[in-house]
Design a protein around this nucleic acid. Sequence first.
DNA 1: GATCCGTGGTG
DNA 2: TCACCAAGGAT
Length: 353
Amino acid sequence: MWTDPQITEMRAALLAWYDQQGRTLPWRVRPEDRAQGLSPNPYAVWLSEIMLQQTTIPHGTPYWFKFLELYPTVQDLAAAPLDDVLTHWAGLGYYARARNLHKCAILVTEAYGGEFPETKSELLKLPGVGDYTASTIAAICFNEPTSIVDGNVERVISRLHRVEAPLPKAKAIIRKLAATLADPERPGDYGQAVMDVGATVCTPRTPACETCPWAHWCQAHRVGDMTDFPKKSPKKERPVRHGHAFVLVRDGAVWLRRRDEAGLLGGMMEVPTSAWADDMPPLEWPVSADWIRSATDVRHVFTHFELRLSVHTAQIADPLDLEGRWVDIGDFENEALPSLFKKVLGKANLPQT
DNA sequence: GATCCGTGGTG
DNA sequence: TCACCAAGGAT
C-alpha cells in the first residue's frame, strides 16, 4: 500500500497525463471548460453511460448522437413510445438496457421533476443504473467524491498491485484499492483519466507502459508480466443450440411478430422460428407452402450460447391467421429487429425490390 | 456468487 | 477461424 505522499504524487501524475491528452468524447466536458464552471448535462452523460455498458465506444457513439437528436431532453425520451426506443436501440444488444432506459426516463420525468438526482445513493435507485453508472454520473456531473470502477479500472488496478485473486472474486479487493487512490478533489476527471489509461495505454493485450503515467508505481510493469493480469476464473464453454427460421413473403412484405417482454431479446420483433434446442428440432412448417432452404445457415453468438438457424423461405398469396404483422422488405431499419434476425433476412430468398 | 443478457471488432 | 473483449445490471 502507498503512503499519503505517494498517493498525492500518483494522482498528480495521472491528472497531468489526462489534462495533456485532452481526449475528447462527445458527452465529455474538457477540464479547462470545467474549470470555467461548465458542467456536463446529466441526461447526456447518463445516456452515454447506459449505451456504453459492455459496448465499445465506436459502436455506441452513433447511437448516442441519434438518440440526442431524436430525444433532446429526458422528457422527450419519456414521451416516446417504448417500441420507438427499441427500434432505435436495435443493433446495440442487451435490450433490457433500452427498456430500463425508457422506464428511467419516465421515472425521472414524473417523480424527479425532470432533473436527475445528484447523489450516488439516489442515482442507484434508478432502473438500469448500478454501482458503476451511479458513481460515474455523481462524480462527473455533480463532483461527488466517489470511486469509479469499470473493466478498465479493474485491469489497471490489478496490474498496479499484481492482484493474484481472479475476477470476479477480486472485485471487492480491487474496489478497495481503487478507492484509496481516487481523487476527492477532481473525482470526475480522475475517474475518466483511469478509464482512459485502461482504454488507451493499459490495454488487455499489448500495454504501452512507456507512455503510462503510473508505470513508475506499477508492480506488474516492474516484473514484466502485465498481461497476466487481471487473473480470471475459467469460463464455462458456450453450448450450441439449433433451430429453424421461417421467412414468409407476401406481396413484398415479410411476416414478423413481437417477442415476449421478458428474457432474451425481450420486447423485440422477430422472424418466426422453431424452438431452439441442443439437438436439431424436427422441421415443422408453420404454414403449408413451397419452402426453400437457403444454402447457408445463420450462426449467431450470444453471451452464453451459440445459435445456428437454418433459413427457410416461402412465398404465399393469401393472408394468414397468425399473430404478427407484415413489414415491407427494405423497411427493416424502422423495426425493433435484433441483429440476429437481420442476419436471417439477409440469407433468405427475398424477392428483389 | 452465479447466471442471464447482444453485438461487432480484433489479434 | 476463433477466442477474447467492451465505460455492467438485474435476479
